[in-house]
Design a protein around this nucleic acid. Structure first.
Lengths: 131, 131, 131, 131
DNA sequence: TTTT
DNA sequence: TTTT
C-alpha cells in the first residue's frame, strides 16, 4: 500500500512533455493548505505531482493554475544526478486519479455539471520523466 | 485533505532526537515495495518518516529495522538551507498513526497479542526537526 | 486501520440530536456519485454519516442539503433490534474530519475564505446513537 | 472519491459464486478490530466485502478464515427486497486491491515470498451479486 | 453468524 | 545509505 490523497490548488498551469517513446507526462505543483499547523505566511505544502499518458493529456486540457482538485496517487522517491554531479532524491506524487472540485472557469451555464468529475487511472510507468 | 497511507518495512532502526524545548522526534526510512512497477534491482520507494512526542517515543521503543508497519500521516514539504548555501526541499511523511503489522521479534509466547497494534495520533507540531 | 474517505453532497440537512448524557450527534446521508459504473437512473451511493460532539454541532451549524463535502472517518457496523423484533445491522461512517468543498451560500464577501475548510477530529464514542 | 481502506482478519473463508454471465464474485466478512473504542466482548466491526472476477478467484484460492489482509475498495450501498417484501439496504465494500499481510499457512519453504502481496484492481461491475 |  |  502506497496511497496519497491530496486536496489542493494548482500552483501553476500543468506542463505537458513527452518521453522519447512518445508518452505524455504532465507535471504541476499542488498547494495543499495546512490546518491547525504553523500559521506562518505561507502555510501550505507545495507538492510535485506527475501524471502519465491519457491522464496527462486530460490534465493539460482541463486544469489551470488556481483550480482546486483532489489527487489520488502514490508517493514516489526518485534519485537523479544534479547539475553539480551530486546525487539527490526527489519526492513526487504519481497521480492515479484526479477529481475536479471546481470548473476551470465558472461559466453562467454549468448548472448540470458542477459535480465532481473523476478521470484517469494510470499505473507504474517504466520510463523516466523527461526533465 | 493531506493523507498518506503506507505499508512497508523500516529500512533502519528509528533515531530519536529532541528539540530544544524537549519534544521527542523519531525519524526513520520506510521501504515501500512497488508492485507492477519497474522490476529493477531496488524496487522500492524509500520514504522518510517522522513522528513526534509520544508517538516518537513509542517508535523508539517498539520499532526496529526490517519490521513491517502501516503508517498513516500527512506529506510535508520542508525547505532548508543546504551546506553549500543552496535552498533545497525535502519531503517526508509526518506520522499520525502507526500500526504494527508484525512483532519486533517473534518470541515463543506471544500467541495472544499478535494482533495489529495501533498507536498514536500526533498533530501539526510547530517546531522544526533538529537536523 | 479502518479508514473511509468520501466526497459527496448532503442528501438532506443534518439532524442533530443529543444522547442522554448530553452528547451531540449529527446524522445525514451523503450522496456519493459513482463514476465508470452502472449508469442507471440513480447513480450514487447514499451513505449514512454520523458525527459526534463538537463536530456534530459544527455540522448542524454549517452544513445544508446539497452542499459538497469531504468526509474522513471509519466504517462502523452496528446491530440493532428492528420494530419486528428482528436483529438487523446498519453500516454508517463515523466522521472524524469534514472539509467543506464549497460554501453554504456564496456571499459576496468571502474572497479570503473560499479555501477548503477542515474541522473536527472525533473518536470512538461509547454511547449509542439515539434513534 | 469513494475510498475505503481496512486492515482486518477474515471472519470466514471466502465464498465464490458466479453470475449468470459467468463472472466470479467472492464474498467474505472482514473483522476489523477497534482501538480506543468501547472494549466490550466483541470489539470489532464485521464488514461485508465482495470482490469480482480475477480478484474474486484469487481470494478463493489464497484467503482463509483468520488471515490478515488489507482491503482497498469503495463503499457500496445496495437496495434489495427482503423475504418479507420490504426494501432494505445493505452496505458492503467492493474490493479493488487486496494485500496479504500474512501467509495462508506458514509452509517451510516460503522464504522468498513472505513479502506483502498485492493483487487485483477491479472496477464497477454492472451485474448484481447472486444472492 | 463471525477474526486474533 | 537502506527493508523483505
Amino acid at each position: 500500500m502506497n496511497k496519497v490523497i491530496l486536496v489542493g490548488r494548482l500552483a501553476q498551469d500543468p506542463e505537458v512533455r513527452y518521453t522519447q517513446s512518445g508518452k505524455a507526462v504532465a507535471s504541476f505543483t499542488l498547494a495543499v493548505n495546512r490546518f491547525g499547523g504553523g500559521q506562518g505566511q505561507n502555510n501550505a505544502d507545495f507538492v510535485p505531482v506527475v501524471a502519465w499518458e491519457k491522464l496527462a493529456e486530460t490534465c493539460g486540457n482541463n486544469l489551470t493554475k488556481g483550480q482546486r482538485v483532489l489527487v489520488e496517487g502514490r508517493l514516489q522517491i526518485r534519485s537523479y544526478e544534479a547539475n553539480d554531479g551530486q546525487k539527490r532524491r526527489i519526492a513526487e506524487v504519481v497521480a492515479q486519479t484526479i477529481e475536479f472540485l471546481e470548473r476551470k472557469q465558472a461559466s453562467s451555464s454549468d448548472a448540470g455539471n458542477i459535480d465532481v468529475n473523476s478521470f484517469g487511472k494510470d499505473v507504474f510507468p517504466d520510463e523516466e520523466i523527461p526533465f
